[in-house]
Each structure stands twice: as structure tokens, then as C-alpha cells.
Design a protein around this nucleic acid. Structure first.
Length: 483
RNA sequence: GUCCUCAUCGUCUAGUCGGCCCAGGACACGGCCCUUUCAAGGCUGUAACGCGGGUUCGAAUCCCGCUGAGGACGCCA
């Protein structure tokens, strides 16, 4: 099936029963990209028809995550729109009308079987054959009376023929109708089940393309049957291959590290997350790293693959790193804005902005995420720096003291303090003393940073400035002496 | 059990009309270079078309079978 290139109306329809999952985030992303690429509309609709599992807290968590990712919606909760309300729990009247019409047309019927009765039947069957799958036997399918009891409404599935649809990713999928049971459309309490709610709202909201996870492929025929029963236009469908856990199991809430907010808390940037997710099931030749704008321009359904994939944290971390490292992808202002909260969390709420700007180029290729960046930045601002115990013991030894003092003296006397001039001064010292770089580099590094690993010493000193550098050398000399 | 799918390195994938693929990129892993440490970077190595049949001058690419994997079968979404 060819994709329509008219501005699409697409939607993300989460059920608010937890946090936003990376799988859900990817579904939202693909929809969003398609809408943004073609100037269409992206809507968010909350499918909260299961009262036991839905919560307002989850709604807020999901919306917060979407907002954090930069996936904005044109219609939906908080922003409103022409098809309000966007919570299914508030659209009962619409579903009731549709279902009444279906019953009148003979496409659906009232079912007076209770959950208890059905469960009993299910159990009885399981007892006889543990592997058997219970199928609703159609008890109420042909009954004509209307007892004064609560009832659910079931769809009257056709017994012959087949239902098919043309998926943008998987192609034509056809299912024999005789394998479909009479599924429930509406509960006795008037709230619809997934298939009915999705179809009624997608139709009402004029959705042109439904993109969702492949786990929904199995109930698409049921939805198509509802569209056909109502004589409604059927939207296009696009099913995404599944994201599996590293072990190849279905990614579920009980696995750790799969919610968007966890990656936010790890210090990943929104584009770091999005870039990993988009490459999962979609590709653009050998390109791995994309700006948000590139994604919008380059996304298309014909480049979405069919095979399921396994989640890989290392690859994720690398993609996030590439995004963060590259100035063209994360500019200085965004980088600094992102890292400040992490510095604050480490007890450095206010730092010298000039020094911060100078230090940024030194940490870009070293910090794998924003949290990591704050750690790399720490010693530039903490006075005194935190000394790694082992580093101190190994390098701030008595024989290092005179050298550190001598260097402090030399640096104190220079006029300018650039990386180049610092290096020149240092070389003069080495020549004068007949020393090798290796003999002094680590003690000097520990003196300045408190650690054994850091950016180049000249760069570090230039960022710290003469005053701080000299003071740290003298202090370290004292520590080395053991005073 | 029934129905629906999928199948290239350990992982994400390129491979669009079959030849340019004894299969390319990236992550991870190993080696080398650079080097004041840590990174970054450069070079490089190991590593895949699940199996079996076809079709064809020629198949990772098309067809069939097998095997493996996943999803759905709920008054969950």
C-alpha cells in the first residue's frame, strides 16, 4: 500500500497504568515524526477505560516524559482541541450511541453472562485440558429476551470469510473470520474495551494513520470488523516491530531501566534517548546519529524494518554520548543548561560561568552523559578539590613537595596564563632541573585535580587560572610533606 | 491448541529492479598508533546471510518446505 502524503492525523494513545516506556516512547516518536514531516497533527489520547489500572499520576508521568523528550502534541490533554475530551473515561456517551447502533444493525448483541460464570467455564476447561484456550461459546449470541440484568455488549463476528488490512510495514495481513470469537465491546459499567474505544475515537478524531506496536497486530482485524460494521472509512495501519529485552523477552514493566524517566535520571539528553529509539526498527543507510530536524526530514515508513530487536544498553549509552559530545547536536548553551542541575545536586549550585564555559570543551569528549559531565566538572569548582585517597597516597609523597613548590614559584611569576604559556614555563622547569615529564605529571595532576585522570594539564591550568592553580600546588606540596 | 508474523556478525542494522556483497557501517570485544593521565581520534583483528530444496548464466536478495523466535487469542490496553 502506498502511503498518503497528505498531512496526516496521527495519535499516541497510552493507557495510564504506569510510566512512559521506551517502547511507548518510540511509538509516540514515529507518529510524531510523521506528523511533523508532513505538517499533520499529532494527538494524545488517554485510554483510561480500565478504572482499576488507570491513575492520574500515570497520566502526568507520561505527559511529563513526552514533554521532556520534546514530543509535543497538537490536540490532547492540557492543550485541548476540537475533539475534546481526550480521556476515554469521559466519552462514554459516544460509545453508548455507537454500540446501540451496532445492536440495532444486528452487528452486536447483549451478553448477560457474568464474569463469574465465564471464569468458571474457563477454569473447568483448564482443569480438563491445561493447554486449552477458552473461547466464548456464544451463549447469548442468539437470545431474544432482555432480562433486567447488567449486560456487556459483544460483537457478532462473522463466521465466514476473512478480514484483511494492508499494513504499511508488514504488508497485507489476512485472518480467517471463523477464528474470531465474539469479543466484548462494552462492559456492564458502560466503559468500552480497547478495540471499541480505539475505533470509535480514531474515527471521531479523524485519524488517518494508526501506528502502534506489533503486539496490536492481532486485534487489528477485530477493529477492521468494527469499522466495516459501522460503514466507516478505515485508516491506514503501521505496526512497529517489538523491542525485546536483552534476553529476547517482551519488555515489560518489571524490567529495570526501561522507563523514559530513568534515562532522564541517568543524565541522558532527550535527543540521546530519541536517537537510540528511532534507530530501533528504522534506519537511514549507514547514518546512526541524527539531529531532531534531520529525523523529521528523513523519517519514512518504507525504511521501517519488520524484525523484532533486543534492547542494548551499551549501544544506547554510545548513541547518547555521540549526541552529547557533538557541538552541532548539543550546543554549548544547551549542554550547560543540562549540566547545571547536576552540579547543583553535587553541592555546587553556583559556579563561575566563565570558568564553566572554558571547561566545557575539555569535558565534551570525556563525559558520557550529563551526570558524568558534572563529575568531570567537579574539581574545577570545588575548593579544595576532592582528593582521591589512592592518588594522594601514591603521588603526593614527600619527594614531590619541592617540585610542586618550585612549579608554584615559576607559575606565580609569569605574566600570562594560557595553555601554551603554561606549557612553556613547565618545559623551562623540566630543562632546568633535568627532569622528564613523566616524573612530575601525575603529582602535578593530583595536586590540581585530586585525581589521576583528567584533561591535559595545561588546559586544566588555563581554565583554573593562575591564582587557583598556584594555590592548589602549594597546598598539595604541604600535603605531600605531611604537614 | 488456534490464528498472525518474523529470520544478515553477540547487539542495532546496510543490503530498495537478483550480479558492484567470498556481505558494509555502528556498538561491544582484541591489537597497534597517538600520548603527561583519562578520554577522543586514526589504523586494524575476531565475528553473520538458520537449514534444505528449487527458479536463474548468477540469490543474502525470488518460490517452497523445515527449523527457530515472537505476538495475539481477557468484561487488559
Amino acid at each position: 500500500m502506498s502511503v498518503s502524503n497528505k498531512p496526516p492525523r496521527v495519535r499516541f494513545a497510552p493507557s495510564p497504568s504506569g510510566y512512559l516506556h521506551i517502547g511507548g516512547a518510540r511509538t509516540a516518536l514515529f507518529n510524531w515524526l510523521w506528523a511533523r514531516k508532513l505538517g499533520g497533527k499529532f494527538l494524545v489520547r488517554i485510554e483510561d477505560t480500565d478504572q482499576d489500572r488507570s491513575s492520574l499520576e500515570s497520566v502526568r508521568a507520561i505527559l511529563d516524559s513526552l514533554r521532556w523528550l520534546g514530543i509535543d502534541w497538537d490536540e490532547g490533554p492540557e492543550v485541548g482541541g476540537p475533539h475534546e475530551p481526550y480521556f476515554q473515561s469521559e466519552r462514554k456517551e459516544l460509545y453508548r450511541q455507537v454500540v446501540e447502533e451496532m445492536i440495532a444493525k444486528g452487528k452486536a448483541y447483549r451478553c448477560y453472562c457474568t464474569t463469574e460464570e465465564l471464569n468458571a467455564q474457563r477454569e473447568a476447561l483448564k482443569a480438563k485440558d491445561p493447554k486449552a484456550q477458552f473461547v466464548y461459546p456464544g451463549t447469548c449470541r442468539d437470545r431474544t429476551d432482555r432480562p433486567d440484568k447488567p449486560y456487556a455488549v459483544r460483537f457478532k463476528s462473522p463466521k465466514t470469510g476473512a478480514t484483511s488490512f494492508d499494513d504499511l510495514v508488514f504488508g497485507v495481513i489476512s485472518t480467517p473470520n471463523d477464528t474470531q470469537q465474539d469479543f466484548v465491546l462494552v462492559r456492564p459499567n458502560g466503559l468500552p474495551l480497547y478495540n471499541l474505544g480505539a475505533v470509535v475515537d480514531d474515527h471521531a478524531m479523524d485519524i488517518t494513520l494508526v501506528a502502534r506496536g506489533r503486539d496490536h497486530i492481532g486485534n487489528t482485524p477485530q477493529q477492521v470488523m468494527i469499522y466495516e460494521a459501522m460503514g466507516w472509512d478505515i485508516p491506514q495501519f503501521a505496526h512497529l516491530p517489538m523491542m525485546l529485552s536483552p534476553q529476547g523477552e517482551k519488555l515489560s514493566k518489571r524490567h529495570a531501566s526501561v522507563s523514559v524517566s530513568e534515562y532522564k535520571d541517568k543524565g541522558y539528553t532527550p535527543m540521546g534517548v530519541l536517537n537510540y529509539l528511532v534507530r530501533f526498527g528504522w534506519s537511514f543507510g549507514d547514518q546512526e546519529i541524527f539531529s531532531r530536524q534531520e529525523l523529521i526530514e528523513k523519517f519514512s515508513w518504507d525504511r521501517v524494518g519488520k524484525g523484532d530487536g533486543k534492547f542494548d544498553d551499551k549501544k544506547f549509552a554510545d548513541v547518547a554520548f555521540e549526541q552529547l559530545k557533538t557541538p552541532a547536536l548539543t550546543n554549548d548553551a544547551d549542554y550547560l543548561a543540562g549540566v547545571r542541575p547536576w552540579l547543583a545536586a553535587a553541592g555546587l549550585p553556583e559556579v563561575d560561568e566563565r570558568r564553566l564555559a572554558l571547561a566545557l570543551p575539555l569535558i565534551r569528549e570525556r563525559a558520557r552523559d550529563l551526570k558524568d559531565a558534572a563529575q568531570h566538572l567537579d574539581f574545577y569548582f570545588r575548593e579544595p578539590p576532592v582528593f582521591d585517597e589512592k592518588a594522594q597516597r601514591k603521588f603526593l609523597v614527600p619527594e614531590a613537595a619541592p617540585r610542586l613548590d618550585a612549579l608554584a614559584d615559576r607559575f606565580a611569576g609569569t605574566s600570562d596564563f594560557t595553555a601554551a604559556s603554561v606549557e612553556a614555563t613547565f618545559q623551562e622547569y623540566l630543562t632546568a632541573e633535568g627532569l622528564e615529564m613523566k616524573a612530575v605529571a601525575q603529582p602535578l595532576r593530583v595536586a590540581l585535580t585530586g585525581r589521576t585522570a583528567s584533561p591535559g594539564l595545561w588546559d586544566v591550568m588555563a581554565v583554573l587560572g593562575r591564582e587557583v592553580s598556584v594555590a592548589r600546588l602549594r597546598r598539595a606540596a604541604e600535603m605531600a610533606r605531611g604537614t
